Computed example of a mutant assay.
Amino acid sequence: MNTVKRELRLFFDFTWRDWSTTLIPGLIVATGAVKHASLPAWNVARFVPWVACFIYFFNLSNQIVGVEEDRINKPDRPLPSGRITVQGAKRRWAIALAAFVGTALFNGNGHLIIETATWVTTTAFLCLTPYGGHWFGRNSVAMGTGTWALLNGIYKTVARPASVEERFFFVVAIWLATAIQIQDLRDIEGDTIVRRKTLPIVIGDRQSRWLISLAFLPLSYVVLWVGGIISMAPTTVSAAHVLLAYRTWHGTEAKYDHKTYMVGLSVGAAG
C-alpha cells in the first residue's frame, strides 16, 4: 500500500502542472463524445488511462532532460528536490511508455496508434532536438501536433469521431499553435538562463507583445472563423480574443502574463 501511495504521489508531483491542459480538456471532450454517441455517463471515465499515460510519459521525458533547468525554475519537482533519482525516473519512463502504447493498442473504439505515435514523436522533438527550444518549433509545431493528438485521441477512447469532430480538433490545434505564443511571456528570465529561443528573447519583450497582439491573435481568430467555430458563439469568442490582445499588450509582470495564458487556455477549452 505504501508503494502504491508513493507512486500516486510521484505521478501527481510530476504531472499536476499540466492537468489544466490535459485532464480538464479531456473531461470536456469525453463528455461531448458520450453525449453525441448517446452512451451511458460512466463511459466518460474511459479516457483517463490513455491520458494519464500521455501526460506521465511526457513529463518524465521532459523532466529527465531538464533537471538543471528545473533547479532554477521549479526546484520543487521530484528530480531537483531529490525525491527520486534520474535512474528511477528512467525506469518509470519505460513503464509509462509501454503502458501508453498498450492503452493505444487495446482501445475498444479503434486503435490510437497514430495519435500515440504523434505524441511520442512530438515529445522527442521537444526534448531531444534544439528546435524544441525555439519559439516556432515549440509553439507553432509541437503545440499543434500535440493538441491534435490529445483531442482526437481522447474522443476515440470513448467513441468513433465523425468527420465534423475530426475537423473541429484540427482547427483547435491550429488555433492553439497560433495563439500559444502568449505562454512564453511568463518566464523570460528562466528561458534566458537555459538559452531557450522564445519569441520575447529573440525579438524583445515589447516587440513580441506587439506581434502577438496585432498579428498572432488576429490570425488565430481567422483560423476559428475559417474553421466555422466563430459562428458557435461569435460574441463570446470575439470578446475573448480582444481581451487576450489587451492583456498581452499591457502585461508587465510574470503573474499577470500567467493569468493571460490561463484565459487563453479557457478559450481553447470552451471551444
Rank of each mutant, 00 (worst) to 15 (best):
K5D: 11
E7V: 09
L8I: 15
R9A: 14
T15G: 04
W19V: 07
T22F: 15
L27V: 07
I28T: 07
A30V: 09
K35I: 10
A37L: 07
N43F: 06
V48Y: 11
V48C: 09
P49R: 14
P49V: 05
A52P: 12
C53A: 07
Y56W: 10
F57A: 12
F57M: 09
G66V: 04
G66Y: 11
D70W: 13
R71I: 06
L79R: 03
T85H: 06
G88H: 06
A89D: 04
K90Y: 13
W93P: 14
W93F: 14
F100N: 03
A104L: 07
W119H: 10
V120L: 05
T123M: 04
W135A: 03
W135V: 02
F136D: 02
S140V: 13
S140G: 10
L150E: 04
N152K: 11
I154Q: 07
S163Y: 12
S163V: 15
S163H: 15
F170P: 13
V172L: 08
A177P: 02
I182W: 01
Q183K: 15
T198I: 14
L199S: 02
P218K: 01
V222R: 00
V226W: 12
A233V: 07
W249I: 00
H250A: 00
Y256D: 15
Y261F: 10
M262I: 15
V267W: 02
A269G: 05
